[in-house]
Design a protein around this nucleic acid. Structure first.
Lengths: 148, 148
DNA sequence: GCTTGACCTTCCCACGATGGGAAGGAGCAT
DNA sequence: ATGCTCCTTCCCATCGTGGGAAGGTCAAGC
């Protein structure tokens, strides 16, 4: 620990004055839980945060921006891996929009496949449920179908 | 180990003749991987299989039927917990079809919610992707949206 | 008989994204 | 000094599935 005694009570209030946020504030401002912020740091999705001398993480505006980007991308269903790629493209001024579009379209297609799959399940099951009397008797097309 | 020397080479061929299957056959016949069959046994979704003296699991027709039921239910998106309930109802001659229908309808509704959610993602993203040139230039509405 | 290859056993680890909670230190207001 | 809120790390759980290692078993061919 490179902790020196001539720096007795530094940094948190200090850092705040310079516009830095601790993890709780960062969480409130971005909608990403503190838990997930730490997790994203651990897996390398965001750079390791600066720290106060006591070890508290500090976040600047750029960090908050990155967290909001991640939050938004998650809400659109992108995987962490895709988001890592998107963050790379975002930070690269020489990126080709082609690469972004390809990734986005691939995700749209994946969503389409999952939606189709779930709709097929839903249709089948809805039809079976519709044919089920839903009373005190045991007969039931749903179970009949599952039982083959 | 209650293994006795006067039972030197028993049971597997024996059991097969009586119509029992080992786990590999059961897997092939039901479409459930051996891995998952063991897992289902471990979590109590299926009863512990009989064993040969050497410890190989044995499956009869009723077991295969149960595994096919599970397979079909999984393919309709039911959770293991729901399937446990469905198996209970299936095996209960005094069940009320009302209970089955309620469970099925709840699942249909859950699917509906997920589908709606994914469609919302898909619409947003498709629209953004559509507006992206997709060429060598960096400008991209997808990234613009994510960046807020 | 002995070897070989396919199969079986248990055990542990991994995914993806998230949350819960414990144990202990730090910040700050009274 | 006390107490409350926040922070830290660490471990565990979810859900359903797969991978793979280490070792035993079975059946067939020589």
């Amino acid at each position: 620990m490179r902790r020196t005694t001539n720096v007795p009570r530094p940094e948190l209030a200090d850092a705040r004055q310079r516009g830095y946020r601790n993890i709780g504030e960062a969480s409130r401002l971005t909608g990403v839980t503190a838990k997930m912020i730490r997790h994203y740091e651990e897996i390398g999705l965001i750079p390791a945060a600066g720290r106060t001398f006591a070890g508290y993480r500090l976040y600047g505006e750029a960090d908050l921006h990155r967290l909001r980007f991640i939050k938004r991308a998650r809400s659109l269903g992108f995987s962490i891996e895709d988001i890592d790629t998107l963050l790379g493209l975002w930070g690269n001024p020489r990126r080709a929009s082609r690469d972004v579009k390809r990734l986005a379209q691939a995700h749209v297609d994946a969503l389409e496949r999952k939606i189709q799959e779930m709709q097929a399940m839903q249709r089948t099951l809805q039809e079976l449920a519709h044919r089920c009397h839903g009373d005190a008797r045991p007969e039931c097309p749903v179970l009949d179908d599952l039982a083959g």
